[in-house]
């Protein structure tokens, strides 16, 4: 302890890097930050760019992240990488799109939530499954 710290880079889809490192440079939102062991705790957003990692007795490594969050503790650093390019406007546009699609789908249907109908439909589906099951047990 003291000369190294643990680094995890994870994205929603996979774990990108995990191991002890000596030094790290990440593209934080307010400018690049270099992190040595025993850095003061920090939480920041990072931009898309290269994260430079120097592990002990190893060449410097470069890992690309498309933005995300960086958490720093004195001996553990976590980078939560985004898998998608995010921005407020982009997210907003996607939300509107999802809403619009739903509204469109809503137009062509009855208004009241018909539980009886819903249940009837489910019961029918369950009955079909049960019948299939029974038939299977009989060896047909």
């Amino acid at each position: 302890m003291g000369t190294i710290f643990h680094l995890d880079i994870v994205s929603a889809e996979e774990s990108i890097y995990s191991g002890p490192v000596e030094f790290l440079v990440a593209p934080a939102q307010m400018g690049e930050v270099g992190i040595y062991p025993r850095h003061t705790p920090m939480l920041t957003r990072i931009k898309s760019g290269m994260v430079r990692i120097k592990a002990q007795l190893k060449e410097e490594e470069l890992v690309y992240v498309s933005g995300g969050m960086l958490e720093v503790q004195p001996d553990v650093v976590t980078i939560l990488a985004d898998t998608a390019v995010r921005s407020h406007d982009l997210d907003e546009a996607k939300a509107l799109e999802a809403k619009r699609a739903a509204e469109e789908a809503m137009k062509n249907r009855e208004s009241e939530l018909d539980y009886a109908k819903a249940q009837a439909e489910l019961i029918e589906a369950m009955a079909q499954l049960a019948a299939i099951d029974k038939l299977r047990k009989r060896g047909h």
Partner: peptide, 20 residues
């Protein structure tokens, strides 16, 4: 939508990968 619930948003056609 068949039974008439109010749907506020939707995603369909995700394919085989849960794309964020």
């Amino acid at each position: 939508s068949r039974v008439g619930a109010s749907v506020t948003s939707q995603v369909i056609g995700l394919g085989d990968t849960p794309d964020i």
